[in-house]
Computed example of a mutant assay.
Amino acid sequence: MTVLVVGVPEGEELERLRSRIQRNPHFQVISHARTPDVALAHARVLLPDITVLTLAGGFRDDPAALGIFHGVRALDPPSGVVLRTRADAAPGDLDGFTVEGAVHIVELVGQAAVGAEGRDEGSAGAQLVHSAVGGSLRSRRERRAQAAGRGRRPG
């Protein structure tokens, strides 16, 4: 499966992410982009199976990232999406996007990541990318329980 990485600057973080993804022989990072216009151009030409989109917060804070999300989901065939965001910055506005099918959230905690599943729980590709980016799938109930324990309103 081909993977487009978006929103990670050149350097050590990008190389670590690329290495984790490609550790699994089923995945090949075919490109990466930092800016929305380049990301969408790459996506239209390369038609990646999966787009790994790194967010600083949520889509309300980053309308350009929302444009990338809608752009890769509108491809034919649509790209699956793994949304990477910091656990302390993962607002509830992301939860609504997981109902779109092969869309998954991975919350980064330091260098580790903890994922939350999308509606398409049987998606082997998305589960493998979760493993590749250091995440694991958890049920929505487990996420809500954890959020309630931290005093956050669950999404």
Rank of each mutant, 00 (worst) to 15 (best):
L4N: 03
V5N: 04
V5S: 03
V5K: 05
V6L: 12
G7T: 08
G7R: 03
E10F: 02
G11Y: 01
L14W: 08
R16M: 13
R16W: 09
I21F: 10
H26L: 15
F27L: 15
S31K: 04
S31Y: 04
A33Y: 02
R34S: 02
R34F: 05
A41C: 04
H42D: 03
A43P: 01
D49I: 10
D49V: 07
V52H: 03
V52M: 01
V52W: 01
L55A: 09
A56K: 07
F59L: 11
R60F: 01
G67S: 06
G67W: 08
G67F: 05
I68S: 05
R73H: 02
L75P: 10
P77F: 10
S79L: 14
G80P: 00
V82S: 14
V82E: 13
L83P: 06
T85V: 03
D88Y: 09
D88G: 11
A89N: 14
P91S: 11
G92E: 08
L94K: 04
L94M: 09
G96V: 14
F97G: 00
V99W: 04
E107N: 08
L108D: 03
G110M: 09
A113G: 14
A113P: 00
A116R: 15
S123C: 14
S123G: 12
G125F: 07
G125H: 03
A126I: 13
A126N: 12
Q127R: 15
H130M: 15
H130P: 00
A132M: 10
A132P: 06
V133F: 01
V133R: 00
G134I: 07
G135E: 07
L137D: 07
L137N: 06
R138N: 10
S139M: 07
R140N: 03
R141S: 00
R143Y: 14
R143N: 14
R143S: 13
A145Y: 00
Q146C: 06
A147M: 06
A148G: 00
R150K: 11
R153H: 08
P154V: 04
P154F: 09
G155C: 00
G155S: 09
